[in-house]
Design a protein around this nucleic acid. Structure first.
Lengths: 189, 189
DNA sequence: GATTTCATTTGATATATGTCACAAAATCAT
DNA sequence: ATGATTTTGTGACATATATCAAATGAAATC
């Protein structure tokens, strides 16, 4: 098995030991991709069969609100990107686009998902992926309830300093829910 | 099987047909509770073994930020409340408290969770619960990214009108991330 | 390396929301 | 019912952030 696939599987198998057979079944639905900056993985309002795991690179998610891009998050190495909507055969609410030239693993959800009704290890594996995602969303919500944007800025700077090296401030400001001018002024301190 | 248990199980079994044996296994870990307004189901920073499904009543979740309650959501009939943290044996980040006298089903996570490694139907059942929760969180985040609070107010009024009948405006304002004074002024239009 | 494009910073002003103080209304407990 | 408590509404003013405009700085393209 490719070492990159191993890395993806290890990242989500947690306490559970997967048999070689299960690992092979999962790998059947994985592929490695090399794609360039600005490439769009998932388009808002479209159905897609794939989710992606970032091996190397940076990715952003955003949706359009009154014609303006609202950035919702940034994924770096070992993060998973995709849409739970897609997992349920519904159109994505977000566009997902590369911010750097990146190496990704694509996961064929359409083919992997039905296996969860046949293979309990795969069911628990998918469970782990969704659970990690839900914990991540909880953190984001907690964060978004901070009243002052200066607090949000400082926490983000503390918890995710890499973002400020790799993601344009315009996108970060949008994620924080403020204009780029305001972010610039907060930083001038 | 109690009809209320049936209602809870049906709500999450979705496409999947559960055998009577599986249903019985789940029911072993359910109980019905009648509790009064202000009763605290889950305390911030404490571990708990239970999640709850609202049969009748209203519940709020909040955490303390600089000594101030920040309300994070309100659950009504057929909603599930609890903490993913508890599901992973970690202390809850939120306090969950009844806003009305309520009837609830308690779910013993500590005992139910290990069964997901033994019974694939239970694994998929738990999967459905967590997935619905994650979709709900996604909606909340989308909502929280609305820039103007007037938009948030109007959307909430449209999508969740019952909240305004049953949940004090102070709590709703806190959830919207504005003061009660500001909410009061928005409403005066 | 020069040119174009994109990202960031700074300034002046307008607007939205917060804060504090208090009044009015609704709800609760006795 | 009555008074006490909680919830909601209104006013005056302070502050944070948005908006618009322009300058500077950095990165990509040729």
């Amino acid at each position: 098995m490719d070492i990159l696939y191993q890395r993806f599987i290890d990242h989500y198998s947690g306490s559970q030991q997967l048999t070689d057979h299960t690992k092979a079944e999962i790998c059947n639905h994985l592929s490695i991709l090399h794609l360039n900056k600005k490439h769009v993985l998932i388009k808002e309002n479209q159905r897609h069969d794939f989710a992606y795991f970032v091996i190397k690179g940076a990715v952003r998610s955003y949706f359009l609100k009154d014609g303006i891009e609202v950035n919702t998050w940034f994924a770096l190495e070992n993060d998973m990107v995709g849409s739970l909507q897609n997992f349920n055969d519904k159109p994505s609410k977000e566009t997902i686009e590369l911010v750097e030239n990146s190496t990704l693993i694509s996961i064929n959800l359409k083919k992997l998902k039905p296996l969860m009704f046949l293979n309990i290890q795969i069911s628990n594996f998918i469970n782990a992926v969704i659970e990690e995602y839900a914990l991540f969303l909880e953190k984001k919500i907690y964060f978004s309830q901070m009243m002052h944007s200066i607090d949000k800025y400082l926490i983000l700077l503390d918890k995710e300093p890499q973002l400020f090296q790799r993601i344009p401030l315009t996108y970060i400001a949008s994620f924080l829910g403020i204009t780029r001018e305001t972010l610039s002024r907060l930083r001038a301190k």
